[in-house]
Every structure is written in structure tokens, then in C-alpha cells.
Design a binder for these strands. Structure first.
Lengths: 207, 207
DNA sequence: TAGATTGTTAATCGATTAACAATC
DNA sequence: TAGATTGTTAATCGATTAACAATC
């Protein structure tokens, strides 16, 4: 199915919110209610749900169970995704822990680090291997998404290597611009740029 | 000055890249060269620089020193920004370390945590206080940007409290939707949603 | 002059929102 | 029926890109 990236992001947020939604609040939810919980407009919500073929009830709104089912059918794959964290330093371990606390279809199957002492050890419940074994383990474990939490210096080299090994999605925490083939889905988390953006907009009067 | 958010983000990236640019490569850079280094188009680069009043030389391109000067004048404030990290767990400490490794105008002046044992201790070189003292220290230290790395449960309460104390910019790592007044500049880093977005687009054939 | 570049407007693209018909 | 909602198209907004004049 061909859906806009922004819609996918919102679908993910609808699902996460509704999964925790108290059962006592009823089986149905109105678009304006869901919108208010996420600071969106009711039209946005209805449009998103329309795009994935969901329809609501004019009296009661949208059936939450159906909503959860159809969103999951849209977003998830049967097997889920196998993730590798490359760079098991502070940030890598924190991100690992963060992901594992959430119930998702994302299975962290390996961590990699240059530190020999971490070899074959289990960190945050994830088996950790030496960086030299990336190609080998990524293939064997069918990793399709890599999270890059390495040093800036090695980021591009590691990206090249994980891509060569079969990874097609990358979440890049390194603040380094990565050059990747256009068939790779790359998402950057550039903390420094984000802070500078915030800094600029809080000094200027806001729109 | 009124500049689009995307332009600010790119200016931040131009600067970071050019700061590390080897001196031997010359004092000038062409828009197409800068564009290639960041996977942008030359027009995008020229337009961004035009918006901040920079002009280049038809033979040599843009003067790197001037470029760095004008970008800094645009983005930075004289005093820089004072940051607080709220939640000094794994993620908070990792983010603290990450920011301190980069040379920026962002000064991390305080960390906060519920853990009594961290009270008055210095973590990653940052003085750490108990969460009950947020209001007090944010005011005294003139913190204007808060980074939220707390538990999801306390995220909204903490956001309310830092805003009440004078913070106007928030970088939110908690994956929880925050309800903030429109004059607050909020930027979300939702790791779960990002992974689900990547997951969706690597299963579908890419555009 | 020819060629490569900058500078800038107009067209296009993607996403949001306004408007409103249809339904219960 | 009146009122509140859903469903969907058309208009608008923000950002990128195409086109091209100006300059060295």
C-alpha cells in the first residue's frame, strides 16, 4: 500500500495510544477525541483512517478493536523486523533498553562493538559481537534494520557494511551525514541540529 | 529573522561540516560541492544562503570563513543556551555525553533525577539535582531548553513544570505526546514511531 | 566570447486544512 | 427533524525544484 510518511507516523501513534487506552472508556472513539489526545485535527485523523480503508460509525465513531487490527495489518509484517545496534556504548545501550521496554514487532537480535571485552557477552539482554563480524551475523540473523550509534568517524564505513550485508533500513544517531543508495530507507536523529533549531526558534518570536 | 525550519536545520549542518573542513581544500566552496557533501541540490544551498544574505563569487563560490560567520550570526545568540536534562537514566546520561562531545553553544547546566543517590553528584560533568528542585534550579540557572529523558509516566508533569519555570524549548525523547502551549518550541524524537515508519517503507517497494 | 557559476522567480510537489455532502 | 458525526474533494500552505537571467 502506498501511504504518505506522515500518515504512517500518525498511525503508529494512534496504535500506541489506543493500546494503552482504558477499556472503561468504551469500545468506540470519535475522530475529534483521538485528535485532541495527539494535538491533531479531526480531519487529519479521519483522512488517515480513510486511507487505510477504515470507516467509522456516524453515531459512535470508530471501533477501537477494528482500528487496532487494521493499523497493525497496515504497518506490521508477519515476521516483524530484526534489528542490530551498531555501537554498544552509552547511547547504544540506552536505545536498546528503550526499545525493549516497548512492546513492538522490533526484535533486537544483535549488538556490535569494537570493544573486545564485550565480545560474546550479553548486554541489556542482547547478544553482543565484535564489529568485525557484522557481515556474518547480519546475514545469518536476517537483520533488516540497523541502528547506528557508533563514533562519527566510523559511521559511513559501518553504513556501507550493513547495507552490503542486506540491511535496508537505517536509524542514524551519529549526527554524520550518510551517503546511502536511494533504495535504503534512512532516518536521521541529529541531536545537535535539533538543539540548534530549537535554539533559533526560541530566540525569534514564534510564528 | 524569519527563516523556514528546514533552512535552519541545513544551516546547522553546513556549519558543522565546514567547521571540520580541511584548510587545504581552499578558502572557497561551490554550492554544488556543499550540496554533494550533504545530498542536497545546489539550488537548495544557494537559496538557503541567499535567505541569510550571503552572496558568493561567480568564479570561486562561497567564502568559507564568511559563510561560517554569517551562519553563526543567524543561528546563535550571544549568551548561548542553558540546557537541563531531566531524567539522568541511561538515555539522559548518553545524550549528555553526546552533546558535550560536540562543540556548540549549548551549555548543559543541570541534570535532574528522582534517584536520591544522584543528589548533588556530578554525572558526566554535569551537576545533578533531585527532581523536586526543578523549578528552583531552572530559574536560578536561566535554563531555556529542557531535554526530557524521563519515564513516560512523568513526561507530561515534568513538561508542565519546566515550562512554568521558564523553559521555552523542549526536546522530547519520551515517545509520549506532550501537550504544550503554542509558544513553546517542541521537538519530538519518537524512536518507536521512527522504527515503525522505517519498517513500513522497507517492506513496501520504495518510491 | 564560451563556460561555469550565482541569484531569484515561477512552477511543482506533498501535506494540511477548509468546505460541505452524506449519514445516522 | 435537528444535531453530530463521518467521508471526501478542492483550496491552501510550506518546501523543493525547474527555469533562466546575470555575472565573472
Amino acid at each position: 500500500m502506498n501511504l504518505p510518511p506522515r500518515t504512517i507516523e500518525r498511525l503508529s501513534k494512534y496504535r500506541r495510544l489506543l493500546k494503552k487506552y482504558p477499556k472503561t472508556e468504551g469500545l468506540y472513539i470519535f475522530s475529534h477525541h483521538l485528535a485532541r489526545l495527539l494535538n491533531l485535527t479531526p480531519v487529519q485523523v479521519r483522512r488517515d483512517l480513510m486511507l487505510i480503508g477504515l470507516s467509522g460509525n456516524h453515531r459512535k465513531g470508530y471501533n477501537i478493536t477494528e482500528l487496532l487490527k487494521v493499523i497493525s495489518q497496515t504497518i506490521d509484517t508477519e515476521q516483524g523486523h530484526n534489528l542490530a545496534i551498531v555501537g554498544m556504548g552509552n547511547l547504544g545501550r540506552a536505545v536498546t533498553r528503550f526499545i525493549r521496554k516497548n512492546e513492538t514487532r522490533m526484535n533486537i537480535v544483535a549488538g556490535f562493538d569494537i570493544d573486545q571485552s564485550k565480545l560474546n557477552e550479553t548486554i541489556e539482554g542482547v547478544p553482543c559481537y565484535h564489529i568485525s563480524q557484522i557481515e556474518e551475523y547480519i546475514k545469518v540473523l536476517s537483520v533488516d534494520i540497523a541502528i547506528l550509534t557508533t563514533s562519527p568517524e566510523s559511521a559511513q564505513e559501518i553504513a556501507d557494511r550493513v547495507i552490503r550485508s542486506g540491511v535496508t533500513g537505517i536509524l542514524n544517531f551519529t549526527s554524520v551525514h550518510l551517503d546511502v543508495p536511494k533504495e535504503i530507507y534512512l532516518k536521521d536523529y541529529d541531536i545537535i541540529t535539533s538543539l540548534e533549531e530549537i535554539g533559533f526558534f526560541i530566540k525569534s518570536p514564534l510564528q
